[in-house]
Computed example of a mutant assay.
Amino acid sequence: MPTALITGASGGIGKSFAQKLAAQNTNLIIVARSEDKLNALAQQLREQHNIQVDVIAKDLTQPSAVQEVFDATVAKGLTVDLLINNAGFGDYGEFVQTDGDRQVQMVQLNNVALVDLTHRFLPQMRVRRSGSIINVSSIAAFQPIPYLSVYAASKAFVRSFSEALWAENRRYGVRVLVVCPGPTETNFFNEANFPPALARNAQGMTTPEEVVDQTLKALDEGRVNVVVGSIASKFLTKLSSIVPRETLLNLLEKQFKS
C-alpha cells in the first residue's frame, strides 16, 4: 500500500488531499501545526478507510522542523511514495507596511521548507525509480501582484522549481507536478488579512475537492503543471505573455489596492 506525506493537512486543500487519498487506499503521514486537528482527522480516516495514518505536528516555519519531520519518518520506518508540499500562506498589504518577520516566515514555509522536504525525499524516489511529488503553487505564480508581493514571488519560485524538477526526474520514473489553483474555498483570505471587500470580489471560487481531483488526474497524465479554476483565473495566467509589463502591473495594482 503506498504512503503519502501531506503538509498543511489540517484543513483546506491539504485535508481534501488526505480524504481523497485515504479513499483510494493510501496510507498517510499528515503534517501541520495543529495536533488536535490532525489527530481528529487521522482518527476519522482510520475508522472510515482502515488505513495507517501517522501524525507529525510541526510548525514548518521553524528552521529545524523539516529535519524533525524527516527523522520521524525514518524512526517509524516509513517510505514516502507521494510527497505533497501543500503548506503555505499569504499576507496582504503594502510591503513596506507589513510585518517583516511574517514575510520571512512566508518564504520559510512556502519555499525553504518545500525545497528542504523535496531534497530529503526525492533521492529515495530516484533510487527506487518510482514516486511522485506535488507542489501547490497558485495562479499568482504567473505575474507579480502588488500588495501580495512576497506571496506571488514565493509561488512563482514554486512553479519554476517544480517544472525544472519535472524535466530532471522523468527518466528516473519520478513524477513532479505543480498545481496552480485560482481562488479556492479555504481560509486563505482570512489568514492573509485580505480586506473584506477584496475577498468578496474573488470570482469563480473552486472547491478544495475540485483542486484535488484535477491535480491527481494531471499527475496520472504525467503533466508538468495544471491550472485549476474558472475561465477568468485561467485567462489571468496568460496576461503576462500578451500585455506589456507596465500595463499589466498598473492594472493589477488598481485591482488589488484596498
Score class of each variant (00 low, 15 high):
Q24K: 15
S241M: 09
A18D: 08
R46F: 10
D71C: 00
L38I: 05
G229Y: 09
R120C: 05
Y147E: 09
L109C: 01
A23S: 15
V179H: 09
A42S: 12
Q103T: 01
D220R: 14
L248E: 13
K217F: 09
G77R: 06
Q203P: 09
P181A: 01
D54K: 11
L248A: 11
V69Q: 06
L236K: 10
V74K: 13
L249M: 15
E163L: 06
A87Q: 13
N27W: 04
G12C: 10
K254S: 07
G100P: 00
F235L: 15
I29E: 00
N27T: 08
N50Y: 06
S230W: 02
F189W: 07
D116S: 12
G11P: 00
A202M: 15
N187H: 12
S137Q: 03
L78W: 03
I242T: 12
C180I: 01
Y147G: 05
E163A: 06
A202W: 06
Q214F: 05
R46H: 13
E94A: 13
F188T: 09
G131M: 02
N50C: 08
A153S: 14
F70Y: 15
Q19V: 00
K257Y: 13
V136Y: 00
L122R: 07
V243A: 08
L83Q: 10
T61C: 08
V53Q: 11
A141Q: 09
N25E: 13
S149A: 15
L60Y: 10
L21K: 08
Q43D: 15
F157L: 08
Q67E: 15
N169R: 00
L109F: 02
V158R: 03
V179T: 14
R170A: 12
I133S: 03
D36Q: 13
F161E: 02
T7D: 07
S241L: 08
E68H: 07
F194S: 02
T186S: 10
V31T: 08
T26A: 04
V243S: 09
V227F: 01
